[in-house]
Design a binder for these strands. Structure first.
Length: 484
RNA sequence: GGCCCCAUCGUCUAGCGGUUAGGACAUCGGCCUCUCACGCCGGUAACGGGGGUUCAAGUCCCCCUGGGGUCACCA
């Protein structure tokens, strides 16, 4: 098999859905692995729903995910243009071909006529669904092509259409279930299914990957390919991602837009990992780098059942990727999230870099990471009210002062030296670590939860550690009741 | 309702005729411990039901049940 040409054809209707991306992702991985091409095409033939802004969102989403396209908008390619709205001439041409060859016909039945037929169907059957329009124009050729009309495909009613789906196996659909679907609207815009076929055909697409909610479109499309005298591409219909309740994943279940995940502090590689692993497996391996995904992906291990979105697992995958990332790189990712909380630092900030090793085991997202880094990077910690009231109290003032003296007296400012110094004091004074840890922690971080005491000290450095301990002691002594 | 797809722990899954049915997340114990995490050790937990085929079925076939999708001049 020659190198695959895979396309992703989202429609610009708002945001890029994580489920749609997943289907595209498998195609992207496949193209990468096989040295093929990944083609981006914008399906903007629904004037009522498309917005220009959405097109930008698609680009931004894919770029953030690192899913680069070999052909498509902005990068160009031999099959330009890549917006359906700019390929109208082509659809017209192919529709005419089908009419000329007797595979399609002009139908002058208006919407009113259709609605009437539909109403009649409901009256007769008592059902809304299952309506199939029998156009009176099917066998007529006496219509006036200058008059308003749609182009309908003359669907066969006998026979079976079948294909070997890369994930579902052999699928057969009885032609008796087909109807004369519309190819072209009166305004000259094609319908999705037709535009899709014309584009895939003219662009030389060899593999179509999509959610299995599109499976219903495949048989009609194969019919169109055949009518056009062409061989259909391969199809891969992936099971969709469902919400935790088993329904189609939607906004009420979870964030569904790619950019939301960016904003929530996920790493793109983590998103890729989670999405791919949800429905595909490689033995017991759970965590994959991007390169591994490209190398290992195969269709055989794409599961055929739909998967449910699991936020907890996603967070776990995110955490794993956070921890696996070299700290200098990780720093680049956190900086924008720090800026969001008013902390302006550069990725080479020494304090940030020093803190990261102690922070990553405690964070699952970049937002959590930024939060955990907060007090290291401010001039003074922002005290949690409860923490301050519980631990920075008069009876802890002396403890903090003595701790300050011991830290000042440490031979070096290293984890070992600091620990030795504090241990010696505890022994002398017959104190337990428990008794001093929380007051010290709150004094230095403003919080009751942080990395180890000595770790915090080392990251802060001698000056700032002493400064904070002294300030904490003073605060404790003043015994100010903040709740008053 | 018609058509299409699907079915192993709560969730994602491994399994491709012979397994004490494995892993991960979650969950529950315990260890570690200056807090919170991380880490480590251990536990609970699954083949939807019924028929076949076979010496042998989670694995193959059929039916049922259940779930999902889709039935547009949307994509």
């Amino acid at each position: 098999m020659s190198a695959p040409r895979v396309r992703f054809a989202p429609s610009p209707t708002g945001y890029l859905h994580i489920g749609g991306v997943r289907a595209a992702l498998y195609g992207w991985l496949w193209a990468k692995q096989k040295g093929g091409e990944f083609i981006l095409r914008i399906e903007d033939t629904d004037q009522a729903r498309n917005t220009e802004e959405s097109v930008g969102i698609i680009f931004e989403s894919l770029r953030w995910l690192g899913m680069d396209w070999d052909e498509g908008p902005e990068v160009g390619g031999p099959n330009a243009p890549y917006f359906q709205s700019q390929r109208l001439e082509l659809y017209r041409e192919y529709a005419d071909k089908l009419i000329a060859s007797g595979h399609a016909y002009r139908c002058y039945a208006g919407k009113e006529e259709l609605a009437a037929a539909r109403a009649e169907h409901k009256l007769r059957t008592g059902q809304d669904h299952g309506f199939r329009f029998q156009s009176p124009w099917r066998e007529r050729t006496d219509g006036d092509a200058t008059q308003k009309h749609v182009v309908r495909f003359k669907a066969p009613s006998k026979g079976v259409i079948a294909w070997d789906d890369l994930v579902k196996g052999r699928i057969e659909v009885d032609n008796a279930t087909q109807q004369d679907f519309v190819l072209m609207r009166p305004n000259g815009l094609p319908l999705y299914s037709f535009g899709c076929v014309v584009d895939d055909l003219t662009m030389g697409v060899t593999l179509v990957t999509r959610g299995d909610d599109h499976m219903i479109n495949t048989a009609p499309q194969i019919l169109m390919y055949r009518a056009l005298g062409a061989e259909p591409p391969q199809f891969a219909h992936m099971p969709m991602v469902l919400g935790p309740d088993g329904k189609k994943l939607s906004k009420r279940h979870a964030a569904v837009s790619v950019l939301e995940y960016r904003d929530m502090g996920y790493l793109p590689d983590a998103v890729l990992n989670y999405l791919v692993r949800l429905g595909w497996s490689h033995g017991d391996q759970e965590i994959f780098t991007r390169a591994e995904l490209v190398e290992l992906f195969n269709w055989e291990h794409v599961g055929s059942g739909s998967g449910r979105y699991d936020q907890k697992k996603f967070l776990h995958v995110s955490a794993e990727h956070l921890r696996a990332l070299p700290h200098d790189e990780l720093a680049k990712w956190v900086v924008p999230f720090l800026a969001e909380r008013g902390i302006e630092v550069t990725p080479d900030d020494a304090t940030l870099l020093a803190a990261l090793p102690y922070l990553t085991p405690r964070a699952s997202t970049l937002i959590e990471l930024a939060d955990a880094a907060d007090y290291f990077l401010r001039d003074a910690p922002v005290f949690e009210d409860k923490a301050r009231r519980k631990f920075l109290i008069p009876e802890n003032a002396e403890t903090l002062r003595e701790l300050t003296r011991r830290i000042e007296g440490a031979s070096e400012f290293t984890l070992e030296a600091l620990e030795a110094s504090v241990k010696a004091w505890l022994e002398e004074a017959d104190l337990k670590m428990k008794q001093i840890a929380q007051p010290a922690r709150v004094a230095m971080s403003g919080r009751t939860r942080s990395p180890g005491l000595y770790e915090v000290m080392v990251v802060l450095g001698r000056e700032r550690t002493l400064e904070r301990l002294k300030a904490g002691a003073a605060l404790a002594e003043s015994g100010v009741d903040l709740s008053a």
